[in-house]
Design a protein around this nucleic acid. Structure first.
Length: 505
RNA sequence: GCCGCCUUAGCUCAGUUGGUUAGAGCACCAGAUUGUGGAUCUGGGGGUCCCCCGUUCGAGCCGGGGAGGCGGUACCA
């Protein structure tokens, strides 16, 4: 019997690829979202919240030739047997929203959206099946000024989050330039028959940062075997085609101005010419606004997505850090985007040009955690100790008075003795505790013990008797002055390397 | 999806040729040291040895299958 019962108990375990978030991490997330929202609003974008679920056909995620959704999305069948899926990005829901509300939206329509998205994929290091994205998009204009603004907005957001100008850059390219390159090696950039090869080549190029010229050469040709022995099929290009593509990528490392690389290509192909002209206009806008140092043309930016039609851009953190194991890690991409002129047309048949980008919050947060390592811990609540259970109303009132003064405070709600209460306050990160036993009560006083100062003072004490005798950083004050004195201590520590103790801080 | 490595307490790990009741350190809880975080001492709670099947008198250990984790790689709309 007992054994059966044990066997039937569910195991307490977090679903694979998901995470619990609490305490300081959650506070950091909230603060970051507030900062990002502020910058988006400053640029004039409107907030938009769409639901977690969309009809699967609206997301465009049915498997080819089947009436089941793509395995990469979380899907359920509605009661009326319509498939619904959790959104996997913010762009597809935006296209649906615009198609549905086009007539009462201003044109261009500029909106931002922040929230979780879900991907039903194998999670990896720092990659989860639910994560936060922060998007900003402009729909209804084909002006490159909108693309340029997206890049500048990305730069401003990253800076506002506390990353120095020199620690990130926005790299910009244009799909049309790449399409021209494909055309030059005999791959039609628009025909369906070449679509698969085109994608394979673009993806191989996208790996240039990771594998370098030798790796890309293999991926463009016969294929590549990785360290674990797994084999990736290649694009099967001929050697002269490969040379052309790798040569293009290699040129991005040369000392010549990148513009020259694009220009060389543009002189040979009309598609590349068009893309290159757009890039030049964007670069002019960047330098006019003073962003020339952070945003630059980079011919190796590709982006894997198929739906991009013009400028594409990627935000990258450039600094290196040591992780917990002492290894050097590069952060790499924290977001990106580009122009997608055909997404709304899926619904309406009318071409609605659009451009925008997405920032991944968790990667940025991981980066910030390292940049700001050791900085501000949020101060815990002031803890009112319960010395005498018969006096709970008195302690409750003290906590209430502190809260009324805007100080985060709580009465100890456990049932343990004083020592355990001190340990509790310590673990909560309390700036101080309030102590009133029968002695103090008789005198109409309370003791306030500053835990942070106290810890410093106590670290010098070795001897136990001395430890007992010392009451470091502890003062007696009249009960009526409790709030005033606690406020002083909280203020001192708030301005002293600790974040505010005020609620929600 | 494919390849490799790994899985014993909350954490880090021992565990003999297969042999009584599976251990340590840290962490946690309680008590002692007047009513005070640390130190010290004493005590305590915690384990389906990842799961299932097999071999065996007997499996944490051997065999098979599966799951989970980590790391590559692919995919990433």
């Amino acid at each position: 019997m007992a054994k059966d019962k044990t066997d039937n108990r569910p195991r307490a375990r977090l679903p694979k690829g998901f995470q619990d978030l609490g305490g300081e991490d959650l506070r950091a997330t909230t603060r970051m979202l507030a900062t990002i929202r502020e910058v988006y609003e400053r640029y004039g974008y409107e907030p938009l919240e769409t639901p977690a679920f969309e009809y699967t056909d609206a997301l465009g995620k049915f498997l080819p030739d089947q009436d089941r959704p793509n395995a990469g999305v979380f899907s359920i069948a509605d009661e009326d047997e319509q498939w619904m899926s959790l959104r996997y990005d913010m762009t597809a829901p935006l296209a649906r929203y615009v198609a549905e509300n086009k007539h009462h939206l201003p044109t261009p329509y500029r909106r931002y959206a922040m929230g979780p998205v879900w991907r039903n994929e194998k999670p990896g290091p720092g990659r989860f099946r639910q994560f936060m994205q922060c998007d900003a998009d402009t729909v209804g204009t084909d002006s490159v000024a909108a693309d340029a603004e997206a890049c500048m907005l990305m730069a401003d957001v990253i800076e506002a989050l506390g990353i120095a100008k020199s620690d990130f850059r926005i790299r910009v390219n244009n799909r049309k330039v790449l399409d021209g390159l494909l055309e030059l090696i005999g791959i039609n950039p628009t025909s369906d028959s070449d679509a698969q090869r085109r994608l394979t080549v673009l993806r191989a190029m996208d790996k240039y940062d990771k594998f370098g010229a030798p790796g890309v050469t293999l991926l463009l040709g016969k294929g590549r075997k990785d360290e674990s022995g797994d084999f990736t099929a290649g694009a099967q290009l001929a050697p002269d085609q490969i040379d052309r593509v790798v040569g293009y990528l290699e040129a991005s490392k040369e000392a010549v101005p990148l513009i020259a690389v694009g220009n060389r290509l543009a002189n040979e192909n009309v598609r590349s010419r068009e893309g290159f002209d757009e890039l030049q206009r964007m670069v002019e806008l960047f330098s006019a606004a003073g962003y020339g140092d952070r945003i630059a043309f980079d011919p190796s930016v590709v982006r894997g997505l198929d739906y991009y039609t013009g400028p594409v851009f990627e935000a990258e953190l450039t600094f290196e850090v040591k992780n917990e194991d002492g290894q050097t890690v590069r952060f790499g991409s924290v977001g990106g985007g580009g122009r997608y002129d055909d997404l709304v047309a899926r619904f309406t048949g009318q071409k609605v040009p659009a451009t925008g980008f997405s920032l991944g919050l968790s990667r940025l947060q991981a980066a910030l955690a390292i940049v700001k390592r050791g900085a501000a811990q949020t101060l815990g609540p002031v803890v009112v100790l319960v010395m005498d259970k018969a006096e709970l109303p008195r302690y409750q009132k003290m906590a209430h008075d502190l809260r009324s003064a805007g100080i985060r405070a709580e009465m100890y709600l456990g049932t343990s003795g004083m020592k355990a209460q001190m340990k509790y306050a310590d673990k909560r990160g309390a700036p101080c505790v309030v102590i009133q036993g029968s002695d103090e009560r008789a005198k109409g006083e309370v003791q306030i013990k500053d835990l942070i100062e106290g810890a410093k003072a106590a670290s010098a004490i070795k001897d136990n008797a001395e430890w007992k005798a010392a009451r470091p950083a502890q003062l007696s004050v009249p009960e009526a002055d409790l709030v005033k004195h606690v406020a002083e201590i909280v203020k001192l520590h708030s301005s002293n390397g600790h974040a505010s103790n005020s609620p929600g801080g």
